[in-house]
Amino acid sequence: MTTTHVEDHVHDQPMSEVALRSVAIEALLAEKGLLTADEVQRQVDLMDRRTPADGAKVVARAWVDPDFKARLLSDTRSALGEMGIRISEDTPHLTVVENTEEVHHLVVCTLCSCYPRMLLGRPPDWYKSLAYRSRAVSDPRGVMAEFGTAVASDMQVDVLDSTADMRYLVLPRRPEGTEGMSEEELARLVTRDSMVGVSEALAP
């Protein structure tokens, strides 16, 4: 099993020292019986299946169903359960915050890289960058401008620094002119970045 795994990694370019050490560590853990390559692969596959499309479905449902939205905001875990999205008890608690005509939310983790992986998958590189982590709290409007997002000066901007056991997902505002659209069509307007709060949902 370990041999197959090593062969998977043989490429034209030699691996970097650190990458090589990561493969070495995994191989040693497998030799000691602490994990198997299959277990690791299952976990890789699980994370690969988690994409912002999951979050987008949830947002679109909240846009079309006010009762669902109320449950999503008050009891996120059970509302997600209704959609067949199960969040295990040992993962951090997910809270959804709603953007309104008065308040816009932006999410960051200044201490590391806490991110609602259960609904968005692995975070993008910029979310983990030192520049984003330093300025999202002190200059959120400037940061959003870098993403091409202009927030009205009379809008209240609330930044969420997820320092602890909570993860935050932004429920973006439903764009104008989407009254007749289906839930599926709406979900396509919901971008990953709009669920982090650096941008709005797409216009139809």
Binding site: Q156, D158, D161, T163, A164, D165, M166
Partner: peptide, 8 residues
């Protein structure tokens, strides 16, 4: 009116 929300 802008605020920061942080878990402590």
């Amino acid at each position: 009116a802008d605020t920061l929300l942080v878990d402590v």
